[in-house]
């Protein structure tokens, strides 16, 4: 029972990692830009949702109505934010080394954190959702409604994204742009706009992850640091594979609670559980430098 209980909690956490990693991978796959600010975009998304829900509840709307209205609205707002971010900050440096983008997004993360602290204060806040505090007991396993919402939400979003990339014109154009930018450009695909759209989708996914994460964590400007762990998930997943990112996120989420619960009993040194995900990532990288689901090919000269 204890194992199952730990696993459920781990899977819920892993889904959040997976969603953030999905955002990383979406951007990387299409544009080869690595967005270190993904976690901070999640944080802003959570704050936007918090503000919207608080506003609606203050007007006497029910929490259900407020939440289900705020969820899509936040995703739309954050999509616009992502689009604008790409247009203003990322597009001018297309063609510069990847390293420049890494530093730029890290720096943007700092700016976002300071801005969020200025706008919403640095006090940790909690997001009221319809799931808060509800529990389902299933054969001795206690299932928090928040965790269930995360798992269902992640599955739903993954399916929507899969269908989007498989069946819509824009989705196929995005795939083309990610496989070969120049060829896609010659085929008449507006690659720059596609890039901005990818950023928009990625920001919307991050916002959804933020809203799902908020009930099991608190909202504060530093909550974006969860992005670093999601980063490990994206790397393990191979950084170019959408299913890989989700699977790796689930793996990391599952490893952490077990390392915390059984680590000292198994004789691991202190501090290992905290960094278990990074150790796992380093091991994967050393064994398979391109990640588990690799997409790098050797160029023939």
């Amino acid at each position: 029972m204890e194992v199952l209980q730990l696993l459920i909690g781990g899977v819920a956490q892993g889904c959040v990692y997976g969603l953030i990693a999905l955002g990383f991978v979406l951007i990387y796959k299409a544009t080869e830009q690595v967005n270190f600010a993904q976690g901070d975009i999640l944080m802003i998304g959570a704050y936007v949702a918090l503000t919207l829900i608080a506003e609606a509840v203050a007007r006497g709307w029910s929490i259900h109505l407020a939440f289900w209205l705020a969820l899509p609205l936040t995703m739309v707002v954050m999509a616009a934010f992502g689009y604008a971010l790409d247009r203003v900050a990322l597009r001018p440096i297309i063609g510069q080394p990847q390293f420049a983008v890494v530093i730029l997004t890290i720096a943007l993360g700092f700016v976002f954190r300071a801005a969020a602290g200025a706008i919403w204060s640095t006090e940790p806040q909690t997001l009221a959702t319809p799931f808060t505090g509800k529990k389902i007991v299933l054969g001795g396993v206690i299932l928090g409604a928040e965790s269930l919402a995360i798992i269902v939400g992640t599955a739903f979003l993954s399916l929507v994204l899969f269908a989007f990339f498989r069946y819509t014109r824009v989705g196929v154009a995005m795939q083309a742009a990610s496989q070969n930018q120049l060829a896609a450009y010659y085929m008449g695909i507006p690659v720059k706009v596609i890039f901005s759209l990818i950023w928009a989708i990625s920001a919307a996914v991050a916002a959804a992850a933020g809203i799902l994460l908020a009930p099991i964590a608190t909202i504060d400007p530093n909550m974006g640091f969860i992005g670093l762990k999601a980063f490990a998930a994206a790397v393990i997943g191979g950084f170019g594979s959408l299913p890989g990112a989700v699977i790796a996120g689930l793996m990391l989420g599952a490893i952490e609670p077990f390392a915390a619960a059984y680590g000292s009993r198994a004789g691991l040194p202190k501090g290992v559980p905290e960094v278990s995900s990074y150790i796992f990532m380093l091991v994967v990288l050393i064994v398979r430098p391109q990640g588990l689901f690799a997409q790098i090919y050797k160029k023939k000269v």
Binding site: A89, P92, I93, A100, I103, L104, I106, A107, L108, G109, F110, V111, R113, A114, A115, G117, A118, T122, P221
Partner: peptide, 16 residues
């Protein structure tokens, strides 16, 4: 987070 924000802003402006 003013210091971090200013550091970040300087970095953004330099890269761009």
């Amino acid at each position: 987070g003013l210091q971090g924000g200013v550091f970040g802003l300087i970095l953004v402006l330099f890269i761009l």
